[in-house]
């Protein structure tokens, strides 16, 4: 009986030391983390990494409660959340693992190809309501947004709307796929999606200008990488500083050339 206990103890110790770890959070990062975890576990047979989604907020609160080792997040940690971690006497470390470009999409039949940041701001805050105001047909503009709590929603608001609020009563869709679907079947629609989702022939990405119309750039991995495409956001991993030793091997793997190859395979932009 004693031997059995000892055996069990050794086994548990083995599992712990070999770094069984949990990653939780953003749904945007979910496909990337899953793929990275798979490849990491193939390489290091003794390790085990579990990845779950639920949203950036869920991931970070799990990190605070200690039920996950890494929180994946498509938005920067909020001041309030940071405060909570420091209240419990811990500190949090932030690692950028990849970048994601946001493409602004319209229906395939829409003749508009170029939009400036100011025009986008007008459209999403409700000041511009008809496509003819930005050089298109006489069609009502129907802006689609992500849910208010999504990291994508907040990043678009910060970067494109310069922190102004979306017009009240904007259509908000629960998932990126739903935005693509809706834009593809609605003539006057406009929406924003991650670059990785830009593979539907019924939607068209507009060229965006952040310098009041001097240059317009189409979204692509290369234009996002060289900095000419302006709507690019970082994607984060967060972990508790004192647990650095156990989570670092996996994060190092993600940051390694091999891990970054997976990043571009998924459709995100490498560091």
């Amino acid at each position: 009986m004693k031997k059995l206990f000892l055996l069990a103890f050794v086994m548990i110790a083995c599992v712990l030391s070999s770094g069984a770890q949990k990653i939780k959070g953003s749904d945007t990062l979910l496909p990337l983390s899953q793929k990275e975890a798979e490849k990491y576990m193939d390489k290091d047979q003794s390790s085990s990494v579990t990845v779950t989604g639920g949203g950036s907020g869920v991931g970070i609160s799990a990190l605070i409660e200690g039920t996950t080792d890494i929180a994946q997040s498509s938005r920067k940690i909020k001041f309030e959340e940071k405060q909570k971690i420091s209240e419990s006497g811990k500190s949090v470390k932030e690692v950028i693992v990849a970048y994601d470009a946001l493409a602004v999409i319209v229906n395939r039949d829409n003749p508009v190809t170029n939009l400036t940041r100011e025009q986008l701001e007008g459209i999403f805050t409700g000041k511009i309501t008809n496509w003819k105001e930005v050089g298109g047909n006489d069609v009502k503009i129907v802006p689609y947004s992500r849910e208010t709590s999504s990291g994508t929603y907040e990043f678009f608001k910060e970067s494109v709307l310069k922190n102004r609020n979306y017009k009240s009563g904007i259509l908000s869709m629960p998932a990126t796929g739903a935005i693509v679907q809706s834009v593809s079947q609605t003539k006057g629609a406009i929406g924003y999606i991650g670059l990785a989702y830009l593979n539907n022939a019924d939607v068209k990405a507009v060229h965006v200008s952040y310098d009041a119309g001097a240059t317009f750039t189409a979204p692509s991995v290369s234009s996002a990488k060289d900095g000419s495409y302006p709507i690019v956001r970082p994607l984060y991993y967060y972990y508790i500083t004192s647990q650095e030793k156990s989570v670092r091997p996996f994060i190092d793997y993600v940051l390694s050339p091999e891990g970054q190859a997976t990043v571009s395979e998924i459709g995100f932009i490498t560091l």
């Binding site: 639920g54 949203g55 869920v58 309030e80 709590s149």
Partner: peptide, 17 residues
């Protein structure tokens, strides 16, 4: 119900939202 389902995942726990 749609609001709760869509927003609970990303709302910081314990906050006003």
């Amino acid at each position: 119900p749609a609001t709760i389902a869509a927003e609970l995942g990303e709302a910081p726990a314990g906050g006003a939202h």
